[in-house]
């Protein structure tokens, strides 16, 4: 089976610090893949490389067979990769629902549709997803006035409304009320099974990622340390070492 996302030997250095050293990962279509590693191990750098936020020094990134490592952020997004951030990024000056409306699958809409008002169908789609993440009550509030956790959920809903082929999530449960974490995981699983969404997830919360992912990559000091099923990773001596050593 060919992978949907194939990262091969990606290297990125900032000055003298090598943040990614010949990292290779592969994400099959329809899978949920986890990316773990101690702080500063290069996880977010890899996300930035895949989504085009930063140029890479060497290596190749292929998405559905197409080389995307030279494309600009917008082109990669329109190819079908959408990400969320550790610190949620929403449009603070827009209402919660408008955040959804402006995020809805624009890559599939041709440009004239930009000069139309959001129709009932688009509003229904936005509200459905707001309901899905439990923010429907907040739809008329300025997104900038939402709490951190609410913004995080809104960002997830925005990403889903874009109907990407692949979703990159940077610590989706960090900063979210612990009571809500289980429901977030549940929703991500539903998004994966119901919408056929492929997920690549950075997560620090080990129980979360062990529960969510089918396959896990572990980075340390910019290089790939180990990969395998959650069980294999949990019992990997190198992984345990990296975490204990870093702690």
């Amino acid at each position: 089976m060919t992978a949907m996302l194939q990262v091969t030997d990606v290297t990125k250095a900032f000055g003298g610090v090598v943040a990614n050293d010949a990292v290779s990962i592969s994400v099959p279509q329809g899978a949920i893949v986890g990316l773990i590693g101690p702080n500063g191990s290069g996880k977010t750098t890899l996300f930035n490389a895949i989504t085009g936020a930063q140029a890479i020094d060497a290596g190749s990134i292929r998405f559905e067979g197409q080389e995307i490592s030279r494309l600009l952020t917008g082109e990669i997004a329109r190819a079908g990769i959408i990400r969320t951030y550790q610190q949620p990024r929403i449009y603070g000056g827009l209402s919660t629902r408008d955040n959804m409306l402006v995020s809805a699958s624009i890559r599939r809409g041709s440009s004239p549709s930009l000069f139309r008002r959001a129709n009932a169908k688009a509003i229904a789609w936005a509200d459905e997803l707001l309901d899905f993440v439990g923010l429907i009550e907040k739809r008329d509030i300025l997104a900038g006035d939402l709490s951190f956790g609410q913004q995080k959920l809104l960002e997830l809903a925005m990403a889903l409304s874009n109907e990407p082929r692949m979703l990159l999530l940077d610590e989706p449960t960090a900063g979210i009320n612990p009571i809500l974490i289980d429901s977030v995981i549940e929703r991500l699983k539903v998004a994966n099974s119901k919408f056929g969404l492929t997920l690549l997830v950075i997560e620090h919360n080990m129980p979360v990622i062990m529960d969510l992912a089918q396959h896990i990559y572990c980075l340390a000091h910019g290089s790939l340390l180990a990969d395998g099923t959650p069980e294999a990773i949990q019992n990997d001596a190198n992984v345990l070492d990296a975490y204990l050593g870093a702690a």
């Binding site: 936020a53 997004a77 929403i90 402006v102």
Partner: peptide, 15 residues
């Protein structure tokens, strides 16, 4: 408005 609030985000959302 999205560009005003966070242009990089808007770009990463495919706008």
């Amino acid at each position: 408005n999205a560009i005003r609030d966070d242009e990089d985000k808007a770009e990463a959302m495919g706008l």
